[in-house]
Nucleic acid binder design. Structure first.
Lengths: 351, 351
DNA sequence: GGAAATTTTCAAAACGTTTTAAATTTGGCA
DNA sequence: TGCCAAATTTAAAACGTTTTGAAAATTTCC
């Protein structure tokens, strides 16, 4: 492998000049730079990463640790995210070192990885409301970026959609259509995103002067069967007068809900309105629903590049506060929402 | 961060001795080693990977590039494999650098990664019968290990199950039970494993003096719906007299087959025998089938540690020929296979 | 007690890059 | 021509480890 020295001796230059020429420093003569570049090409020069890292103190690697979860849907998004992340990181000359974790202690894997390796930072996903990793890494002085947002005090870079806003948007649209009995079929509120959806939902309902029966707020793994079972129970009146609208944490849940509506002999949107949040994964396309699904939309893959860039900017010194993105989801009206049916105006007593 | 020098000055020793003490060289005094170890602990010493790599010429990283595939089942195994691999590699102080690839050129991603990085080797998965990556990496002198086995000439380390043997075992068992009309529901023969299953199946049938109608050998993505559709068609006699036994490339296919058998009002194993190859993934457990599924079993997770070790041994100089493992799958008889039904002895004309 | 053999330690070089501080060359201007 | 400033280049140090060849310390043996 050709080194800086090889190029230097070939041209009668010092390694210092060669290094500067290749790294685009301004103080090197244009002709020299040209010559250096040509010879570098000719010799097939590739900088030795280890040497660069030794002197810069950077490893050019960031870590990501994924918890294995029995639930299938996680895998779907995982591969999707992985694709985008590695591509975005590669553009900034950074590699992704991956580990899979089974330890019950949420920070153990991070400790191990920091010991074993020289990592410039971490990408964190699937935050819980008070995420212990945030405190640990902050205290250890290790840069990281969070995909999502948690409720810790520390200031850290993140990229998240406005999950409270997602619920507010959905509720706002439904109340404008006259709906008053609205159900939330949420993800597991142990996850930060679901906790925020719940908070946003409750706040929006309150400010619309509506009360939410607890039985209309269900949360679990956002699966189709969960949506089906919950919707069926609610429509059967098992939790009081049935809702006229469902706000779903995922399109998968919405699929279950629509099946339940059909099985009860009802129709969407005439009898029941359905709105969901859409991560725009390739598997369940909201537009292929029948009727097409009204959604708040925020493609997951859009998060990859910002995440990578936030992290690397932070590593390079940009303060955390300047790297906090809260993205508003886009509301897309399609066929699954409509005016409240005539029997539906009957309000609940407001709070 | 404490360095070798810090430990050295603290104890009045040279960095050379400290290095040797920590790396377990025999020529260092036991007491010295103890002292060194203690101070290393006290100062929280961690070797600087970049420095180690610079001098050893090793990066301590191996790469793995995964092709994204639309098909879901791949993701399942992917996470499983990833878990095992990172764990096994960590034991040998090695990291996994992961990239996801979309390039139609099968070696482009490898070229890119070799340019960008200093990698000690690669883990290859999902081989095709004549795999272009093998030739490319062999010629480039980059060590690798193959999960699976392809038909290239080059000698390379691999860890694979004996896929021809898998089919032979299944056919052998079924013919012993009197079956003569046996169908193979295979994976996509564009993949090496499926090509081998097919070859093994054909050879075993021939040596049992049986003929296989081409229509009894179907291959595609090993999904449940594929198994269902194919089995239904065959049982309906669409491809000639129905088979009395199915050899399935996966338990997922077998699930589809058993559904098809039931839907035709037949019973397993009285009317139809079913045997599958079982990767022992957590999702579809062969023992939970009804009746429990007879399988050739070779847990995928068992491949992870051997793969990691083969690769690292090869990097350390062990010749490829000594690192070629072909694992025999275990035959487990359960309830889904039985003697051929009375109408089933009618033989086809043998070849 | 001393030479020889053995064990243990050390100083220095090497890996390939970046960066600092100093040296050299170039160009402008009087 | 000579001087000063600017532009360009260089030598050398630094990063933290491993490894080589030699030196020092210790043990063994007669």
């Amino acid at each position: 492998m050709a080194t800086l020295k090889d190029i230097g001796t070939e041209l009668g230059l010092s390694t210092a000049t060669v290094s500067r020429a290749l790294n685009g420093f301004p103080e090197v003569n244009a002709k020299t730079r040209d010559k250096v570049r040509k010879t570098a090409d000719k010799l097939g020069y590739r900088p030795n990463r280890s040497a660069q890292r030794l002197v810069t103190g950077r490893s050019g690697m960031v870590g990501m640790i994924v918890k294995i979860r029995p639930d299938l849907s996680a895998d779907q998004t995982f591969v999707e995210i992985l694709t985008g992340l590695t591509a975005a990181l590669a553009k900034r000359d950074t590699d992704l070192v991956l580990a899979v974790d089974q330890d019950p202690d949420p920070v153990a894997a991070y400790k191990r990885m920091l010991e074993r390796d020289m990592l410039d930072g971490f990408i964190l996903n699937a935050p819980v409301p008070q995420d212990p990793r945030v405190d640990f890494l902050t205290q250890a002085g290790v840069p990281f970026v969070m995909h999502g947002q948690c409720r810790n005090d520390a200031a850290y870079p993140f990229y998240s959609i406005d999950n409270q806003g997602v619920s507010a948007e959905a509720v706002g649209m439904l109340t404008a259509l006259g709906h008053k009995r609205i159900a939330l079929l949420n993800g597991d509120p142990g996850h930060a995103y679901a906790a925020d959806r719940l908070a946003g939902f409750a706040a929006a309902m309150r400010s619309a002067d509506l009360r939410v029966p607890v039985a209309f707020m269900a949360g679990a793994a956002p699966s189709e069967s969960f949506g089906y079972a919950q919707a069926l129970a609610m429509l059967a009146g098992q939790h009081g007068t049935p809702p006229t609208a469902f706000v779903c944490a995922s399109t998968l849940i919405a699929a279950g809900v629509m099946q339940a509506v059909e099985d009860r002999g009802l129709r969407v949107p005439d009898d029941v309105s359905v709105i969901a949040h859409d991560d725009a994964l390739p598997q369940t396309r909201a537009i292929n629903f029948s009727p097409a699904l009204t959604v708040t939309r925020a493609p997951l893959r859009d998060a990859c590049a910002p995440l990578a860039n936030h992290l690397i900017d932070h590593i390079n010194g940009t303060p955390a506060r300047a790297l906090q993105t809260l993205l508003r989801a886009e509301l897309i009206r399609r066929g699954s929402t409509g005016p409240v049916p005539s029997g539906g105006e009957m309000p609940w007593p407001s709070t």
